[in-house]
Design a protein around this nucleic acid. Sequence first.
DNA 1: CTCGTAATTTAGATCGTTCCAAATTTCAAG
DNA 2: CTTGAAATTTGGAACGATCTAAATTACGAG
Lengths: 345, 345
Amino acid sequence: MKQPKVTVVDVAHAAGVSKSTVSLVLQGSSLVNEATRARVGAVIRELGYVYNRGAANLRQSKSKIVGIVVNDLTNSFFAELAVGMDMVVQSAGYIQFMANTSENADRQGEVIASMREHGMAGLILSPARGTTAADLRPLVDSGIPVVLVARNVPGLKVSSVVSDGHAGAAAAVRHLIELGHRRIAFLGGFNDTAVFDERMRGFRDALLEAGLDASDELVISSAPSRAGGVAAVERMLAMRDRPTAALCFNDAVAFGACDGLRSARIEPGVDFGVIGFDDVIEAKTAVPALTTVSVDPQGMGRRAAQLLLKQINAGDFDAEAMVAAVRLVVRESCGAPQRVRELTA
Amino acid sequence: MKQPKVTVVDVAHAAGVSKSTVSLVLQGSSLVNEATRARVGAVIRELGYVYNRGAANLRQSKSKIVGIVVNDLTNSFFAELAVGMDMVVQSAGYIQFMANTSENADRQGEVIASMREHGMAGLILSPARGTTAADLRPLVDSGIPVVLVARNVPGLKVSSVVSDGHAGAAAAVRHLIELGHRRIAFLGGFNDTAVFDERMRGFRDALLEAGLDASDELVISSAPSRAGGVAAVERMLAMRDRPTAALCFNDAVAFGACDGLRSARIEPGVDFGVIGFDDVIEAKTAVPALTTVSVDPQGMGRRAAQLLLKQINAGDFDAEAMVAAVRLVVRESCGAPQRVRELTA
DNA sequence: CTCGTAATTTAGATCGTTCCAAATTTCAAG
DNA sequence: CTTGAAATTTGGAACGATCTAAATTACGAG
């Protein structure tokens, strides 16, 4: 079982040439004679030679490895993101270290350090909650290209690809207003994150633009989860002047909000308008089907990977911020006339 | 920006010792004097030295890298699987190459070859459909530990971690029988896969054990997707002696089956019993909530990773087959008295 | 034949680490 | 002071590739 590992020298010896020639063949150089190339190729296959990229990198010091670090792979939004990256990384002939941090910034620091030691050429990071600029500064300063995706880290001069949370939230709110709602809440999400901030500002701007109330009490933050949605909706229902609709931080919160409404005997989509954010897979099949802001995570992942590869290949580069467009997918939970709009979107 | 990369020699020079001593410090050897260790450590931090694991591996020829190759990361079942592996791999101080194959065996071959060139110490593979023993033979023969997970590849002597499809299917069928069903179908899945075969046999054995009809016409294969479920249920409804319940190949098929039943004005969970397989996240929140066989993919991932690491550390090892237990989660789609059983499971 | 140029091939240094064998330092006992 | 064992430190050869500069071979022209 334990093969004694064949190297270029073995191949060279077996083919009756020098290791330099074998190296040339490996690189597909045009310098080598056709007959020689064929002979060496045959020997390579015969001996079952496996190229040692580590040894090569040592000399060349530029690897074909990128790092992908994601905060939560069990969330289908981020899984799609990762798959999008995977596609372009693979077809560019690179391979990726990929790690999940479970929103743990310490763990994130460890895996990034480990990837660095292993010689990654660049990193795509969907940062864990609580990631600070200081955490990433050493990496960025070392000159390794870094692309942040989905979430930004304030105070850091690196490239990023994020969705247009402001526009998405505003579009959602405008739609609710159009449906006749006049008092609208924003539910869920931790209010210390950049993503929350952006979506919430979109929410507020759209209200102000329509001359409606946008006071702070309408913004109820909570964990960005189903449970958080339940909690937030409870607090909302306790208000004296109750809203008639809500934009939720993400789809998980929206589902939780629906749960909470039902246990108060309020039917989401009929008695109360609910809109989510992200358009996760379940949004389409839930009851009622969730109106939500669709983000195309796979496309975002692809774009982030393309940006990273571009920066790796360019010796020098500047930080570049990309904002991915979003679109409102109208289904049933907002109480709109059924499905009419989704078809035209 | 472009740091001129500091090496052990630089550190050695700055600390006034030899590179051998620095190496010793790096490895935490007890041979080195406490004062020296401290001084070197300080210099390392000061210069921002980054360990080059590639160079080290070259000399030691044993890396801290494992490969994880998954057939479909957008499927939450496999995403959970990957997260389980990630957890144990990370805490063992390893780092993983991770790639998605989208059920493409060619792509799978490419990424595995690439990972090999990069020097992975072992591989966990959830094989793409159509993977043959011949595809993996060279890798296995090279002595690199391989663990197959979720799906097996017949004719290959490697370790594997799979769920107990036979027992799960049998338990589901017994439950349906207990509820009074006497004619039960098996819907969906490609009948040329090992997983299909196993679940289908569990289905048939449970029927025979109860003295019920288990003829071939009750097994209707199709794509293992929502669309496949719709198609399968249509064919089932065209039978003269119509079943009153069905076990589905997986949850996606089960959802499709529900869709198909509804468009025939048959209410799943009331007029017809449906059971799925895998217990994906949506199963709990669907309407009706899906009765299904729960597999604990994260636990399976963890076990697979533990097995792989064990084999990597053991110089020599034997192929080991693990079968993960499953449990039936009774919800509403099978028409059972609501929720009673889930609480006791 | 002999030459010069183009086409091939090659020796040997190098990348950043580990590891062996040997050298050096330390220090308590004689 | 010596001395020898224990404690530290170190030079230099690997590891498996690439790369440079130089060596060798081929071949058509004179």
